[in-house]
């Protein structure tokens, strides 16, 4: 598990999840593929959650302060950084993703 005060590390998070499912000892290439797929889903979930939760006021504030010429990605990071609601939603999405993945694993591992 990640340290309480360290920023989110997708690698660590996903490795841990794979470990929880007991798949860490599978063929590394296969695990790597799964991990990438999980990363994509996780990414989608996180940004979906963030865009649903972000406060329009935060967008306004960041818009006022930020240089327009900045790359959109930097801008998005700044938005997430400034929006407590988005961060909370992302944290929740992270939890949900973990729970759902474990649930899916439970179900799928029994269908063999």
């Amino acid at each position: 598990m990640t340290d309480q005060n360290t920023p989110f590390e997708p690698n660590q998070f996903l490795d841990q999840l794979i470990e929880e499912m007991g798949l860490q000892n599978e063929a590394p290439e296969k695990v790597e593929v799964l991990k990438e797929k999980m990363a994509q889903t996780l990414h989608d979930r996180l940004f979906e959650a963030a865009s649903e939760a972000i406060e329009p006021e935060v967008i306004d504030a960041v818009m006022d302060e930020q240089d327009e010429e900045k790359e959109l990605w930097t801008f998005i990071l700044e938005l997430l950084k400034r929006s407590p609601a988005a961060q909370e939603a992302m944290t929740q999405a992270l939890e949900d993703f973990r729970a759902e993945t474990l649930e899916a694993f439970e179900v799928l591992s029994k269908t063999d």
Binding site: N5, P7, Q87
Partner: peptide
């Protein structure tokens, strides 16, 4: 995802 982490603000446990 990695960028989220390296940007330093997304600390799930803290949140």
């Amino acid at each position: 995802l990695a960028a989220l982490g390296t940007a330093g603000f997304f600390v799930p446990n803290l949140i």
